[in-house]
Design a protein around this nucleic acid. Structure first.
Length: 865
DNA sequence: GCGGACTGCTTACCT
DNA sequence: ACAGGTAAGCAGTCCGCG
């Protein structure tokens, strides 16, 4: 019944004896003189000239990349359900017969029907025969597995593992993965769990140290006239500065001194060395010369700007061999001798931004990311390069390379570790990890899992053909299926509130209830009675679902091993920090698995599977509420996976948690305890003071990024007063104080004693300006005005700052408001009041209630006598 | 021609 | 280019108003 269970982690063919004994420290490995041939697999690509895949291995000792070309004569292929003889007669195949190498029958397991089937493998000379051009086979006929990139396919078929260590002694042989021994602390934690032995292989891989990669950060400056941005499509201005910062302490500026300001050929300035060149050609040649000493090149926006610009300029001024170093894709730029990491692409990734860095930077610019993560931003450069001296320009340029490098170095190379660990989890190349999003990472891993089980990867339409009945109407218009439940909060102040929540609810459901595209509405008659309550959806009892396995393994490994080790005081701090990176990487995956399953863009999307997950989630929280009521606990709010319980008896609460865990197979934790929490009638909208005194604000207007700084400031002043309040008398006093603050603030607004900047409402422009066709929101109007006034392009993602004005439009970009008399003061007073009312309303209700209760009490007493 | 009731669009948040 | 649920503010529309 458990065929395939937990098989998603398999060791590859390996030597029986471990090469490296009892450690996971690179230092020890490095000290071993025999291990000059130790490499870590980082990347792969296809060479269309050689018609072969090559892998990029980073040598630990020599700190360079070895490019290993396939020696197994592996060829691109796709699968067809037609017989070889049928295919031979097929006109579309006949027309490219010279590119077809072989048609052979292979056995595959079809997960949708749960049967073994015979398919024909169409083996071809080059990947373009399968897909990628208008005339490729996949455009003409129904093919399976025809849209997996060939280099990925190669990695899966040969069982390579990105981020693993290999020994290469003979380049003509297939590299062998190094067998590592498991670190004792991992073994100790593993023994306390019931996880399958096979997971150990994967634990070793994840726990293995990541090298401190030799790398260089690169940034270029172009001598463009003021107000004109250099463009890659039309690179008419010369590159005149390149700044470089290497992990080997290289701190260098290369400058093309186009105005002859520097007399020397070399200079040593405070923070960096300068090499001076008399032509752009020499400069570009020198850039390549230096960066090719480094296996990894780091940029910020190098995909779209620095590298393509270097290449285009290089071609234009006669460095023809520049093409051998920089390869341009449609949206990326790669370096042939190593790996190019564009940090802009990496930090832009929503999962990285939200889960790995908890939204600490709000916009993806070098300045904003650096300020948030390493506490230093860029120093503004007000002048144009024409106005500035070459020395000023160099100083400015150098900080970019320096900051870019530091972003890879802070917290013990956190970012490099993160990238490597994500590559290990997804088994995707470093290049792809940095450029693709979470759904691609998960897809890649799942394709790998299919390949290992010899499962056929189904077509979208085959999954859809199983049936896509929606059982519950979504609450929100335009959504595909129903989501979570939010409990109506009880307005007022509540003291001693304990919040319990289901530990990663959706992933746990996916794991525990065997949810996957093939197990939900599976083909077996005998599973049809295993219904999801309240629906006609059934779940397989016979086989473990492939997505369920993946979610389960990630969750178990994170919770049982790496989360615990990250907090284990017995371990050295450096190790703890590394394990913390591992657990955060796993978190990125675990948080997204449910989401991608419900996304049409995901190749394994299946609506009933996503719907079953949320319906089971609704069932879990409703059941928990029912049990809490039976046990006399008072639930005052809840959202998706959490319950807020007012002033519970500790013993009852513990019993409650145990009973829930017994009744439904999901774990409940105490998440946090509020000294008091304040609700209004609004859902997802409250604040509370935690036991350690910190203020926890959720959803309130004052927290929103769009709220003007002036109003935000007052909002937090009010919260600060409330933080120290405990009794009714204190509340009354606080209320007086708050009233004063509000009156003061309003007076200031009326008298014009507030800076216009502090009144700006910041709104993100999320689409191109021309895409707003249905309505024209104020920030769009403002952006269009700005575009006209300044003649600049405003791209999606730009934050528009508007001021509410008295004129007909009602709002204007802050840049165009010169006089306070334009400001619509009444609007701001309204905004201030609505922001504060979210706090005060709820408190007011409660204060009144408390007063009434008091009267009752005295009346009661009155009647007694 | 104007304002209130209503719906829809857009953004930012929560889980 | 991971999901749905919720709140807020405004744009746009309809309707009544002698």
């Amino acid at each position: 019944m458990t065929q395939g269970l937990d098989k998603w982690i398999y060791p590859q063919e390996k030597n029986k004896q471990p090469i490296i004994k009892n450690n996971n420290s690179l230092k020890k490995i490095n000290d071993n003189p025999k291990l000059d041939n130790l490499y870590i697999l980082l990347s792969a690509d296809y060479d269309s000239q050689e018609q072969k895949v090559y892998l990029k291995f980073y040598n630990i000792k020599k700190e360079n990349i070895l490019i290993w070309y396939d020696t197994t004569d592996h060829k691109p292929y796709a699968l067809s359900k037609l017989r070889p003889e049928e295919l031979r007669m097929h006109p579309d195949l006949a027309s490219m017969s010279d590119r077809i190498i072989d048609l052979k029958e292979v056995k595959k397991h079809d997960p949708i029907t749960d049967t073994d089937i015979i398919m024909t493998k169409i083996v071809v000379k080059d990947p373009l025969a399968i897909g990628g051009t208008r005339t490729s086979l996949r455009e003409k006929m129904r093919l399976w597995e025809a849209d997996i990139k060939y280099h990925a396919n190669y990695i899966f078929d040969l069982g390579f593992q990105v981020g693993a260590y290999y020994i290469i002694e003979d380049i003509k042989k297939v590299p062998k993965q190094v067998e590592l021994e498991i670190p004792p602390e991992i073994m100790e934690k593993f023994n306390k769990t019931k996880m399958d032995e096979k997971i150990l292989e994967w634990l070793k891989l994840l726990a293995m140290e990541v090298p401190n990669y030799k790398r260089v950060a690169l940034d270029i400056e172009v001598f463009n006239p003021p107000g004109i941005m250099p463009r890659v499509e039309d690179p008419q201005y010369p590159i005149f500065i390149a700044s470089l910062r290497g992990s080997d302490n290289l701190r260098k500026i290369l400058v093309y001194d186009l105005r002859n300001e520097i007399k020397e050929d070399r200079l040593k300035l405070d923070h960096y060395e300068v090499e001076v060149y008399r032509s752009e050609k020499e400069l570009i040649e020198r850039i390549i010369d230096i960066i090719k000493q480094y296996p990894i090149v780091i940029t910020f926006n190098g995909d779209k700007f620095d590298l393509p610009y270097i290449r285009r300029r290089g071609e234009a001024i006669g460095i023809p061999n520049i093409r051998e170093y920089i390869k341009l894709g449609r949206n990326d730029a790669r370096i042939t001798w190593g790996v190019h990491i564009d940090l802009y692409e990496f930090f832009k990734n929503v999962s990285i931004k939200t889960y790995a860095f908890s939204n600490s930077y709000d916009i993806v610019s070098l300045d904003s990311v650096a300020k948030a993560l390493i506490g230093e931003g860029k120093i503004e450069f007000e002048k144009s390069f024409e106005e500035a001296s070459i020395y000023e320009a160099m100083d400015y340029a150098y900080q970019d390379a320096e900051i870019t490098y530091k972003l890879t170095e802070f917290n013990q190379n956190l970012v490099m570790n993160l990238i490597t660990i994500i590559a290990r989890i997804s088994n995707m190349t470093i290049d792809d990890v940095c450029r693709l999003s979470i759904s691609n990472w998960i897809k890649n891993r799942l394709v790998f899992e299919h390949r290992k089980l010899n499962y056929l990867i189904p077509l979208r339409e085959e999954i859809e053909a199983k049936g896509v009945k929606q059982h519950l109407k979504p609450i929100t218009k335009g959504k595909k299926y129903v989501g979570a439940i939010v409990i109506q909060p009880e307005p007022g102040i509540h003291f001693n509130v304990h919040v319990v929540d289901f530990a990663s609810l959706y992933p746990s459901i996916i794991k525990e209830y065997n949810i996957s595209y093939e197990t939900v509405n599976c083909p077996h008659q005998e599973c049809r009675d295993n219904l999801v309550e309240g629906t006609s959806t059934w779940i397989c009892k016979k086989k473990r679902g492939i997505i369920s396995q993946f979610a389960g393994a990630i969750r178990d490994v994170r919770v049982n091993i790496f989360k615990k080790l990250a907090k284990d005081r017995k371990l050295p701090a450096a190790k703890r920090r590394f394990y913390d990176v591992v657990q955060s990487s796993l978190k990125v995956f675990i948080n997204a698995i449910y989401g991608v399953m419900g996304s049409e863009a995901f190749p394994f999307y299946y609506l009933p599977a996503a719907e079953a997950t949320t319906i089971l989630g609704r069932g879990a929280i409703m059941k928990a509420i029912e049990i809490s009521r039976e046990m006399g606990l008072k639930v005052i709010y809840g959202d998706t996976d959490s319950l807020f319980i007012k002033d519970p008896d500790n013993e009852t609460l513990t019993k409650f948690i145990k009973r829930v865990e017994k009744t439904i197979r999901l774990k409940l934790d105490i998440d946090k305890i509020y000294r008091y929490v304040v609700f209004s009638r609004r859902k997802k909208n409250y604040f509370g003071i935690l036991t350690d005194g910190t203020v926890d604000v959720k959803g309130l207007l004052g927290k929103k990024s769009s709220t003007p700084p002036y109003i935000k400031d007052i909002f937090y002043q009010v919260l600060d007063i409330l933080k120290n309040v405990n009794t009714l008398d204190e509340f009354k006093e606080a209320k007086e104080n708050i009233k004063q603050i509000v009156l003061n603030a309003e007076a200031k607004l009326r008298k014009g004693e507030v800076s216009i900047n502090d009144l700006a409402i910041s709104v993100t422009l999320s689409k191109p300006l021309h895409a707003y066709t249905k309505t024209t929101p104020q920030h769009v109007k403002a952006a269009r005005k700005l575009k006209r006034a300044l003649g600049i392009d405003i791209s999606p993602g730009t934050i528009i700052r508007i001021i509410k004005t008295r004129d007909k439009e009602g709002a204007s970009p802050v840049e165009l408001v010169r006089d306070y008399r334009q400001v619509d003061v009444e609007k701001y007073i309204e905004l201030l009041r609505s922001t504060l009312s979210q706090i005060l309303e709820a408190m007011d209700i409660d204060i009144k209630e408390i007063e009434i209760k008091k009267e009752f009490r005295s009346l009661d007493q009155f009647f007694k006598f």
